[in-house]
Design a protein around this nucleic acid. Sequence first.
DNA 1: GTTCTCTGTGCAATCGTTTGCAGTCGCTCG
DNA 2: CGAGCGACTGCAAACGATTGCACAGAGAAC
Lengths: 316, 316
Amino acid sequence: MHVSTASRALGSDAAGVSAETVQRVRELAVMLGYRRDVGAAGLRTGSSRLIGVLVPRLTDIVLATIYESIDIAAGTAGYSTVVANTLDDAGHRRSRLDAMLSRRIDGVIIGDSHIGDTAAFELQKLGVPYVLVMRKLEGHLSITTDDSLGGRLAAEHLLGLGHRRVGVIAGDPLASTGIERTDGFRRAFEAAGYPIDDRYVVGSGFDTRGGLAAGTRLMDLAEAPTAIFAVNDFIAMGAMGAIRDAGKKLRDDVALVGYNDIDIAATLPVPLTSVRSDLSAMGMLSVEALLLRMQGETADPVLLPPVLVPRATTVG
Amino acid sequence: MHVSTASRALGSDAAGVSAETVQRVRELAVMLGYRRDVGAAGLRTGSSRLIGVLVPRLTDIVLATIYESIDIAAGTAGYSTVVANTLDDAGHRRSRLDAMLSRRIDGVIIGDSHIGDTAAFELQKLGVPYVLVMRKLEGHLSITTDDSLGGRLAAEHLLGLGHRRVGVIAGDPLASTGIERTDGFRRAFEAAGYPIDDRYVVGSGFDTRGGLAAGTRLMDLAEAPTAIFAVNDFIAMGAMGAIRDAGKKLRDDVALVGYNDIDIAATLPVPLTSVRSDLSAMGMLSVEALLLRMQGETADPVLLPPVLVPRATTVG
DNA sequence: GTTCTCTGTGCAATCGTTTGCAGTCGCTCG
DNA sequence: CGAGCGACTGCAAACGATTGCACAGAGAAC
């Protein structure tokens, strides 16, 4: 019995080996607790069967949800995933991507793209298949929700409720999500005849702390806004703190709209109105697109449609 | 110039190679964009420089936080990490652990241990170094917080506020965290002369949805509790929904204590009283312990002390 | 001038798989 | 009965790195 025969017998098709041998080999493999060494196989075949995923932070439940669905989809296609927190920092991105390339990653899903970031370009140059998810970058294939439309939905909702003086907590000015959601929102208000002054649009981190700080700035304005659009739910939750600290009441004094509609939004003491995006679908589709590219085929960009879910922070 | 020379020149010590050669090799490596193939090296050296991490779910921010600190600590020690969501399901655990072993993982950090789970035993038998984090399992090295003490702290806080008829949302009955926090809490009430009836202790998932369902059951009791202890903050947030749905007011009608003190707890519209545990320290320490074990040394179990942080769900 | 030591480099085996090619064996067909 | 074919199996090279060992050459010591 030669190793090559065993290798063939353990292959998924087991071609060119007698049925008897296949059975014998497989039984023995189980008995001996044999496990094929994926690394060694990769050395020979040139494929690590590994997909790298770059995210800003997994403690952001939005990214964790996307990663979860990516991992599942990759798993069913026979791939493992490695994930890296890049903290939206160029240095981290570099070193983590380097580590991935050292492991001869088969493809990369970039969930943290950032204006001015070079990761996508580098992969392009190296010929490593990649896809962007969640955030876009001009000239690269991306799977995202229609953030501009999402912003407009939030705006129309608030306009319909009679709000005219509104604030926006815009997130990171270098992430497409924050940019496009803010743009869609502002354009809708402008089109309605109520352009939003720049002082009412403040940048922030994407977490609760950032939302609290930015929300406080908005509440400190001479004429505080009657409604706030936060480009994600964590920011919105931070803003809730700011509104409370300013002695105002949610909805009655200041309405609030978040984005992503994470699970918690619905069960908060005051349930949060939010723009829902299908994060799991985004993850799945990004894997699908990446697999296509890995086979040398072309994949199309995707823009998933968001939906506004009205709750107590805006309506009775 | 032979590959062996190059390999030596690129090693961290670069022993047995002339300084001139080292410099030449390194310059060339940079110029050519050479990257050492970690997988191939692992084949020869027997070490993948990979640490596997098993968690129930990364969408649970508690686990995501622990994983984040594990990843950082592992990184500074020159290791990469692979993480797997096991969803507290035996089948998933099996297949994900298998995949890790196929990659010749150097060590495993188990964050999802469960009574009746065999992962730890299997690793022990295979001689693969491992450590438990967050949850304990009899007979295995673990790095956790003192959950029993945490439960007692919550109980003493509520007792001090005059609460006598209290409910507990206990989480998964097979996870040590839920078990010990609940036990510590009940023992303290019993010691104070107010034993808690079994009907006032309900199991649940560890997420918001689970908290909502369990909270609803508590609020539906003939004599609803005047305070609820939830064994984690997400459960507590679900319970907030249940309390609201029952038409009761947080704190005035029903006080609420959570566990872990995640970031959001402080900025909620009604800030949540919670038992804080140092999740990052837990992650770091688990890596430290694992590294020790990987070097064949012995590591000691750790019990980090929790602290109660009183907020508006219990006090004025 | 011979021997010895020391430094730096090269050789070759090795890790565990995969896979093209070649060989063996039994059968069928003419 | 011999050729030919098909089904299995074995051989050996290859993937990219590491490492014990041997060897070359320079210089020192006698």
